[in-house]
Structure formats: structure tokens, C-alpha cells
């Protein structure tokens, strides 16, 4: 199977799964943005998705994408380290135009994944999982998403720590996407001499657009939490 056995095939799988995850994040971010305007509107969205068949199917698809992207990332890194060989360069100079994030995609990806597990525990476990199984894993109604967001981000001290943790997560994700989006485009063959600088800009813009709604929501709740403290 060329998607597993050929290097361009493997890159293509990374690119497709990564792009699908970016599209999901854009969708997720837009939904979250509702929190800033009306918590009721957000809860309506929560009810609309909840444990309905299409939401469950979507979640499973996203989980599959994450799994594929994760496994391929590890597999590619192992292959690449083997290709590099056991002898490392004693002196390694800075290569012009090579970004730090492009050389550390695995580490950035692993940090993103670690935070993702924390995030799933914070919300998914107490919402969709609770609704599906009927087990009460959280303090509130599984469909009252706004209450969970409120509790996590505005509870004094602990909430503020969570805000900072989530902001760090977004920064790491931005770095990952700043290289990832452009790299995915190149891997799919969507690049040429004229578009090279443009693809770099597109990459940065998409990375910023992805984290922007999430950051706004967290900063909004951080402000609320601090306001309540004062």
C-alpha cells in the first residue's frame, strides 16, 4: 500500500489528516466563540451536538484522525532517525531560513497531544461521555457546557492556572501549525516558485485563525475570574 510504504504517500497521509484536524479546530473554535456573546447560545450548541448520532460519529472520526496523525508522526520520526544514521555531526550550523518549529514537530505534537488528553478529561469526559454512558462524571448537567467552562476557568487560583495552561497549549499549537499548514500544502503538491512565500503567509494566518477564537474565550474567562477576585 503506497500510503504506508512510500515516503510521499506517508507525507500525504500526514497532510490530509492534519488538514482535516485544522478544519475541525476552526469549527470547534467558532462554536466556542459563542460563549463570549451568550452562554445560553453555547448551551444550545451543546444540546444540538451532545450525544446525538452525528456528533458521536464525528467524534469517532476525529479520534481516528488524531490516532492516524499520531501514529504516522511516530513512525516517520523513527524512519527518519534511522535514515540519519547513528553517527551525528559534531558541529551543526544554523541553516538559513529553517524555523525551530519545523525541526521539532514531533515534540510540539506530543505536547499538543498531552494537553489534548487533559482537555478531554476536563470537558469531553464530563459531557459527551457522561451523556453516552449515563454515568455522572461531572458536577453539572452534561449538556450545561457553559457551567463546566465557567467552573474550570473562573474558580479562584485553580481557574487562573488552567487559563495559563490552556494559553500555553494554544501557543504550542500555533507553532505546530505555523510549519504544519504550509508543509501539508507542499506535501500535497500545492506549492511552486511563485506561491512559496504566499504559502508561508497562509500557514501563519491559518495557525493564527485557529487559535484566535480559543484564546479570546480563555482570556474572556480569565478576565471574569480576575474581576471576581478583585
Amino acid at each position: 500500500m503506497w500510503l504506508k510504504d512510500s515516503s510521499v504517500g506517508r507525507k500525504f497521509v500526514m497532510a490530509i489528516s492534519g488538514t482535516a484536524l485544522v478544519l475541525f479546530l476552526l469549527f470547534h473554535g467558532c462554536m466556542n466563540l459563542a460563549l463570549v456573546f451568550s452562554e445560553e447560545a453555547y448551551n444550545t450548541i451543546c444540546r444540538l451536538l451532545g450525544a446525538n448520532w452525528y456528533a458521536v460519529l464525528g467524534s469517532m472520526l476525529i479520534a481516528l484522525l488524531v490516532l492516524v496523525h499520531f501514529c504516522y508522526g511516530i513512525y516517520l520520526t523513527i524512519l527518519n532517525r534511522r535514515a540519519r544514521g547513528n553517527d551525528r555531526y559534531a558541529v551543526s550550523g544554523k541553516k538559513e531560513g529553517v524555523t525551530w518549529e519545523s525541526e521539532n514537530m514531533l515534540v510540539l505534537g506530543l505536547v499538543v497531544f498531552f494537553f489534548l488528553v487533559l482537555h478531554l478529561y476536563n470537558f469531553w469526559f464530563k459531557m459527551q461521555f457522561a451523556e453516552l454512558t449515563g454515568i455522572h462524571t461531572g458536577a453539572f448537567d452534561p449538556q450545561d457546557g457553559a457551567a463546566y467552562v465557567n467552573a474550570l476557568f473562573t474558580t479562584p487560583v485553580c481557574g487562573q492556572i488552567y487559563c495559563v495552561l490552556y494559553l500555553i497549549w494554544f501557543c504550542v499549537l500555533w507553532l505546530h501549525l505555523n510549519h504544519g499548514v504550509g508543509s501539508a500544502m507542499t506535501s500535497m503538491g500545492l506549492n511552486n516558485e511563485t506561491w512559496q512565500p504566499r504559502v508561508k503567509v497562509i500557514s501563519t494566518v491559518v495557525a493564527t485563525l485557529v487559535i484566535l477564537p480559543f484564546t479570546i474565550v480563555v482570556l474572556y474567562y480569565f478576565g471574569m475570574g480576575i474581576g471576581a477576585l478583585l
Partner: peptide, 10 residues
């Protein structure tokens, strides 16, 4: 035995 390109540009 060559590796897989990750578009770093080195």
C-alpha cells in the same frame, strides 16, 4: 534508506 521529507528547507 533515505528518510522522509518534512519540508524544513535545510
Amino acid at each position: 534508506g533515505f528518510g522522509n521529507c518534512t519540508n524544513t528547507g535545510a
